[in-house]
């Protein structure tokens, strides 16, 4: 008689449950009979680098940060596309050339827009 092919999964789940439960049970028994728990404000603190945490964890990022995302796209992501474009420049068909030009134009348009908006001015 062949065992059910899913039997080993059941065994696996059983072992996966029992294996972590044994140390937890032992720790609980140890705490119950020998070691008294000693919780404290600092021991239970969330941050564990020795410095007290300041403020709330649920903070909001200002929506003005979208400017950084746009300028990052223009200067950083564009460079990644420009390098393979420059390498394959001579062998490109016309369609691919026009496509990359459109892409560049879109990014340049973004740059012109950011320039006009004054994002590139050094903040004083």
């Amino acid at each position: 008689m062949t065992p059910n092919p899913y039997l080993f999964i059941v065994i696996f789940v059983g072992v996966a449950l029992v294996f972590p439960l044994i140390p937890l049970a032992l720790a609980w028994l140890w705490r119950r009979f020998f070691q008294p728990p000693k919780p404290g404000a600092q021991k239970n603190a969330i941050y564990e680098c020795g410095v007290e945490s300041i403020g709330e964890a649920q903070i909001q990022f200002r929506s003005q940060y979208y400017l950084y995302a746009i300028i990052f796209l223009i200067f950083d992501v564009e460079a990644i596309f420009l390098v393979p474009f420059a390498v394959a420049f001579t062998g490109l068909p016309v369609g691919a050339f026009v496509a990359i030009l459109v892409f560049l134009l879109l990014l340049i348009e973004g740059l012109v827009w950011a320039w006009g908006k004054g994002c590139l001015n050094w903040a004083r």
């Binding site: 070691q35 000693k38 404290g40 600092q42 021991k43 603190a45 564990e48 020795g50 410095v51």
Partner: peptide, 12 residues
């Protein structure tokens, strides 16, 4: 203070 706090955060 940081060292004392780290010591406090260590479990017994």
């Amino acid at each position: 203070p940081q060292i004392v706090r780290l010591y406090n955060q260590m479990p017994d």
